[in-house]
Each structure stands twice: as structure tokens, then as C-alpha cells.
């Protein structure tokens, strides 16, 4: 079976590269993007099976908006989004239980940064299975 494609979008290059290494170590085919624009372009070009998205990039809501934009896109709306962030601590907005709300935060999973590799891989597996079903 061909390796599943995962796109990581985060403006922290070190985090992107280390996550990529962890995912590749687990047998995934990972690519990275460090801005919302680059992320959108790679989503369209590569059509990954899953997106790992940071909530804050240039602005604190870039990730929110990118997730909303994706869910409006007919082709990309099925791609599960795993949000990786610590925005809650910055804004006081309880993001965790808002995840999945199609208007407010249309993401499929949520993990607080930094995340332990095992926890991350379990969550990814869960989301990929859910998307297949």
C-alpha cells in the first residue's frame, strides 16, 4: 500500500521538520509548508490524506481561517484536519471543545503543543480511519 500523505503547516520551521521526521519514521509521506498561502497551494497540488495545522501563523487566527477555507472547498473538504496549537492559552478561547463546530472551528482533531510522538501518531491513525469509513 502506498504511504499516506500528510501535510504539516506551521510557521515554526524546526517544528515542521521534526514533525516531518517523526511522521516519516512512522511510515508516512510527509511534506511541510510554513505559511497559509504555501499550505493552500500544497493542499491543492498534493491532495494529502491529512492536514496538521497550526492555529497561529502570521496572525493568531490564520489557522482558523485556513480550516474554514478548506471546508468550503468541494475537493478538499473531506481531508481531516488535526489542529496543533496552544492558542487557548493565548486567547482564552476554549478551542478544544469547539473543534468540529462547522462554523467556528471546522477541524477534526485537536492537540496541544508540544505533543508526545505516540499521542500524535494515535490521533493521526484515528483520523485517517475515520476519513476512510
Amino acid at each position: 500500500m502506498e504511504a499516506r500523505k500528510i501535510l504539516i503547516v506551521d510557521d515554526d520551521v524546526d517544528l515542521c521538520d521534526s514533525l516531518k521526521a517523526i511522521l516519516e519514521g512512522a511510515g508516512y509521506n510527509a511534506t511541510t509548508a510554513t505559511s497559509r498561502a504555501e499550505g493552500m497551494a500544497k493542499m491543492k497540488a498534493d491532495q494529502p490524506d491529512l492536514l496538521i495545522l497550526d492555529v497561529m501563523m502570521e496572525t493568531w487566527h490564520d489557522g482558523f481561517e485556513m480550516s474554514r477555507e478548506l471546508k468550503r472547498d468541494q475537493q478538499l473538504r473531506q481531508t481531516p484536519i488535526l489542529m496543533l496549537t496552544s492558542v487557548e492559552e493565548r486567547t482564552g478561547v476554549p478551542v478544544k471543545s469547539s473543534a468540529g463546530d462547522p462554523d467556528w472551528l471546522p477541524v477534526d482533531g485537536f492537540l496541544d503543543k508540544p505533543v508526545e510522538p505516540d499521542v500524535l501518531l494515535v490521533e493521526i491513525e484515528k483520523l485517517l480511519e475515520g476519513a476512510q469509513a
Binding site: D14, S18, A21, E89, K113, P114, E116, P117
Partner: peptide, 13 residues
């Protein structure tokens, strides 16, 4: 915490 997240993930690799 942002820096820590990067350090911890790099170390995990």
C-alpha cells in the same frame, strides 16, 4: 512554550 515545543519534538526525533 513555542520554543519548548520545537525543542521537545526535535529531541523526540
Amino acid at each position: 512554550k513555542g520554543h519548548l515545543a520545537a525543542i521537545q519534538t526535535c529531541l523526540a526525533v
